Amino acid sequence: MSEPTSEEVRQLVSAFQKLKTWPKADSAEELVEWMSSYVQSADTSGSSKADFPTSITLNQPPKLPFFSGDSKCETTFDVWKHQYNCLLKNESLSRRVLFRVAQQSLRGKAATVAMSVGPDGDVNELVAKLEDMFGSVVRGQSLLSEFYRARQTEDEDVTSWACRLEEILNRASAHDGLTPTSRDELLHNQLWSGLRADLRDKSAYLFDQGGSFGNLLRSLRRMEADMSERQPTKKTISKAATSTETSELQEMKGMIKQLSADVAKLKNSLLVTMLNLRHSSSHIDTGDNSSHNSHNRARLSSKDSVNHQEVNQFVSVVDNQDT
């Protein structure tokens, strides 16, 4: 057997360094014996791989969404409890850990309720108190009635409408224990029958095709998106209509103002003409009043426009003189 090269010796030394061990090699027999014992210990304990871990597991504590019991809180108690029930499925979490996680997620009034359980209380007792304080008290039959009466509002898109239906049915299912099949059928039927009239009329063929609640929901969302692309939003229409109405109103006001001015000028002109004719006739018939009437006509002709009150007074004077 040929002597090992310096490179082979270097690689052998490097391999033992990676294993963090060094063979006993005072003699060839000792080296063989050491190698045999090392292989056996590696097979039983896996120590040959223990020094080179392939993955690291980080134990990050679980979290629940914040819940305060306030009506303004985004998370409802039903959502919070659902997340808690999901954590219960994790067998690696102790009851003590669950208690800490639940406590840390509570805010406001809910946190005040948790204080009555104490720092070393039981998680089941804590959840039961929260259920008594914030859980739904509506009967299952009433919730089903609310489900059937529900209708999509004008400012509610299909996704929001479907989420609201599911939320109502979730609460009803907790009381009546609906099967998954009946639940899907109820959602499928009510999703379409509660739609706004414009969307329901256009999507009747989708409902008649049957299928699941999820399939109908996706089809309705696509239809809603197509409809919104083909027509402007209500806000744009309202703004344009308001702008048009304002412009037309201003134009009408200007026309009325101009017409009123024209009518006033025409009335003044007609009154002056009639008064001149009447005074001319009065001057011929009654010579005694000729100087007085001439003075009044001169008074009228000296003004560009005639005040209505003055004209009426003048006409009354002339009428009295004529009689």
Rank of each mutant, 00 (worst) to 15 (best):
C163D: 14
R164H: 07
L165S: 03
L165E: 06
E166A: 08
E166T: 11
E167H: 11
I168M: 09
L169D: 07
N170V: 01
R171K: 15
R171G: 12
S173T: 15
H175L: 05
H175E: 12
L178T: 08
L178N: 07
P180K: 07
D184E: 06
E185I: 15
E185P: 03
H188Y: 08
H188L: 04
H188V: 00
N189K: 02
Q190N: 08
L191P: 02
L191Y: 05
G194M: 02
L195H: 01
R196G: 02
A197I: 11
A197C: 08
D198Q: 09
D198V: 07
L199F: 07
L199E: 04
L199Q: 06
R200Q: 13
R200F: 04
R200S: 10
D201M: 06
K202D: 08
Y205R: 08
D208S: 09
Q209R: 13
G210K: 00
S212C: 06
F213T: 01
N215F: 07
L216I: 01
L216D: 00
L217Q: 01
S219T: 03
S219A: 15
L220C: 03
M223W: 03
M223Q: 06
E224Y: 04
A225W: 05
A225Y: 04
D226K: 12
M227R: 12
S228D: 03
E229I: 07
E229C: 04
E229T: 07
E229R: 08
R230K: 11
R230T: 09
Q231W: 02
Q231H: 05
P232S: 05
P232E: 04
P232W: 01
T233Y: 01
T233N: 05
T233M: 01
K234A: 14
K235Q: 10
T236S: 10
T236F: 09
T236C: 04
I237W: 00
A240P: 00
A240T: 04
A241T: 11
T242G: 04
S243Q: 10
T244C: 06
T244M: 08
T246W: 05
T246H: 07
E248K: 10
E248F: 05
Q250Y: 06
M252T: 12
K253F: 10
G254N: 15
M255E: 15
I256S: 11
I256N: 10
I256H: 12
I256D: 10
Q258M: 07
Q258V: 07
S260W: 04
D262N: 09
D262F: 06
V263K: 13
V263E: 11
V263P: 03
V263S: 09
A264G: 02
A264C: 04
K265F: 10
K265D: 14
L266Q: 11
L266H: 06
N268E: 15
N268V: 10
S269D: 14
S269P: 05
L270S: 11
L271P: 00
L271Y: 05
V272E: 08
L275F: 03
L275S: 02
L275W: 01
N276W: 04
L277C: 10
L277H: 15
R278H: 07
S281V: 12
S282L: 15
H283L: 14
D288V: 03
N289S: 14
S290R: 14
H292E: 14
H292D: 12
N293D: 10
N296G: 02
R297V: 14
R299P: 00
L300R: 02
